[in-house]
């Protein structure tokens, strides 16, 4: 404990804020790479099963609501904008503005999850959740019924994992808002905000791919 840290935001083992900031953002990028690969396993299965069973995927996808999916896409892109703007305010030292935009991000995130909740409950109601009560005989043609479970399993796994990431991000947002209010960050030291932003934008990107892959396939599809 011999060294004195002049800056309260600087950990003892770093030389200066610059080194600390660069380490933290690099760490976050490394983490996001692992996230890419984590979702990658699901995307691999999606790609292969869709290639093998295009009709089952098209027909099952038609059971999802484009309106809800598209609406949520707009909401999520909007939350990415407010997230970016919160950092933009921090760069100007306007921490009140930062809080405002972070709260907006949090609200948009909640809107997304509420819509997602409605979608899920509909699926439960319609027996479209794979498992004991799964039954697509009312919805899919006899030829495609056998493989509908693959689509809906992937739908729930992919959107569920994505929603879980949203929830984690929103908890982090709450903590961050508290800390910004307490004056932990400034125009010189806002690394934590940047990390939050990187994570949030990543979750947005995952959705940008999920939306067309899950909701928008087979909209012009007609049974062969």
């Amino acid at each position: 404990m011999s060294e004195l840290t002049s800056n309260p935001g600087l950990a003892h083992h770093f030389e200066d804020l610059e080194q600390q900031h660069e380490s933290m953002t690099l760490g976050m990028w490394a983490f996001l790479i692992t996230e890419v690969m984590f979702f990658g396993g699901l995307f691999t299965l999606y790609a292969i099963y869709r290639w093998q069973y295009p009709d089952a995927f098209s027909e099952s996808s038609n059971k999802l609501s484009v309106l809800q999916g598209a609406g949520n896409t707009v909401v999520l892109i909007g939350s990415s904008l407010t997230m970016a703007l919160s950092i933009w305010r921090a760069q100007h030292g306007d921490m009140r503005g930062t809080v405002r935009y972070l709260v907006a991000t949090l609200l948009l995130g909640s809107v997304f999850l509420v819509v997602k909740g409605f979608e899920y409950s509909h699926k439960f109601h319609d027996h479209l959740v794979p498992g004991a009560h799964f039954d697509v005989s009312q919805f899919l043609m006899p030829e495609t019924q056998a493989h509908g479970a693959l689509f809906f399993s992937l739908y729930f796994a992919m959107t569920g994992m994505h929603a879980l990431h949203m929830v984690i991000g929103m908890v982090a947002l709450l903590i961050l808002i508290k800390r910004v209010r307490r004056g932990r960050y400034s125009a010189e030291n806002y690394s934590a905000l940047e990390l939050m932003g990187l994570y949030w934008h990543f979750v947005d990107i995952v959705w940008i791919f999920l939306f067309p892959l899950l909701y928008l396939i087979g909209r012009t599809w007609t049974p062969a």
Partner: peptide, 10 residues
């Protein structure tokens, strides 16, 4: 879209 987010938002 993903690229736009990566390049400009991130």
């Amino acid at each position: 879209k993903g690229l736009l987010v990566v390049l400009f938002f991130m």
